[in-house]
Design a protein around this nucleic acid. Structure first.
Lengths: 202, 202
DNA sequence: TCGTTCATGTAACGCGTTACATGATTGC
DNA sequence: GCAATCATGTAACGCGTTACATGAACGA
């Protein structure tokens, strides 16, 4: 069984999402899985086959701790295993959100990072937003270049790839516009609000 | 029913994409990889570490054949290994595009299926488009339900998840609108054009 | 001559999934 | 009683990736 043991490389969406959820409140595994579905940026439902081994690994690394519910908390029900963030886990979350930020331009990572923006500094947020926008601009350039080559051929014989790329380019354009607005607001807030959440980098 | 185990699970994007590209023209591995980047729906660049083992497996199954370029074709250059679709491979492609169509509502699969619409019958196209739209409608309902619960909280303390979901819902809405248009056109074509590509289902 | 692109691969690993187990609790 | 959901896991596998090799052809 060679997978699964070594340290956190890029990606690692599930771990980050779990840290983010447990930052908000302690939870047991089953509820974590439910919340992963909608709460976070990723609308994807992770399976228990991913979640429980992940929790086990996080326990081993000391990022979370597990406690059984006491008899008072459980009113006749079976006690559940509640996980909560430890101090090292909290540090780890913070480190992931700041240091790993460049990798957050990745499609799947960005959503989770963005959803956890509340726990980050303004400069980190701007870095992630800019990274995402740059990436999308590159993709848009590729798409336009590719669209310019091909014939228009509106869905007649085989304009399907062309139509797909046209629609994709439209989506990317709109997301760039969305990011423009977010960046502007973020910069304005950074200039006026004297960072309400955390002190500047030291 | 979990007896869905054997053969083509969902996913399997790479194999489908390669079949689709080789359907258009014979190619060698390096060119396949380049084309996978932009030609197909998926803008993702598959790595050689995926591509060459995949080609090997497809050879083993007899879906493609390889031939070295002859001395006449190669003008001083090193001869390259050219892959081409066999008749069983062609059948397999057709089967994937029709039978496995329901799974094509998946985010990543849909793009490739759509790009290959030129090789399918009108009824299959409509089935895929409807499947995709239904899936997106479900997601939109989830998003709206989730958005209705939460406070508006426009980006003040922690409105980031809310803003993310709002933007996501907007994107999903637009894609549904796009699909509406495609479905309408497809139905119109099916009604008038006497199916230009293939005879109706038997 | 030297870096870049072309061209073809293999080994090891990453990050998940589905299928398989197991049992308690809730609602009809 | 019996099904659905809650709740916790393990084993085997899927479908890719990165890193590692290797070498020929091309342009500055």
């Amino acid at each position: 069984m060679r997978g699964w043991t070594m340290g956190a490389r890029r990606g690692r969406v599930l771990e980050l999402a779990v840290l983010g959820l447990l930052y908000q409140a302690p939870m047991h595994g089953y509820e974590l899985r439910k919340r992963l579905d909608l709460e976070l940026g990723t609308l994807r439902a992770f399976s228990y086959g991913s979640l429980y081994p992940c929790l086990k690994e996080m326990l081993r690394k000391g990022h979370i701790s597990q406690t059984e519910q006491s008899d008072e908390e459980v009113h006749g029900r079976r006690p559940r295993i509640v996980y909560r963030l430890t101090d090292p886990g909290h540090d780890h979350l913070h480190r992931l959100l700041t240091e790993v930020a460049p990798a957050a331009s990745d499609d799947e990572c960005f959503g989770v990072h963005f959803a956890l923006f509340g726990h980050t500094r303004s400069d980190v947020r701007l870095r992630v937003l800019h990274g995402r926008r740059d990436r999308l601009r590159g993709r848009l350039a590729d798409l336009r270049h590719h669209l310019a080559d091909r014939a228009p051929a509106v869905l007649t014989s085989d304009g399907y790839p062309h139509e797909l790329h046209r629609h994709d380019a439209e989506c990317v354009e709109r997301e760039i516009g969305w990011l423009d607005g977010l960046i502007e607001r973020e910069e304005h807030r950074a200039g006026t609000a004297k960072r309400p959440d955390l002190p500047p980098a030291g």
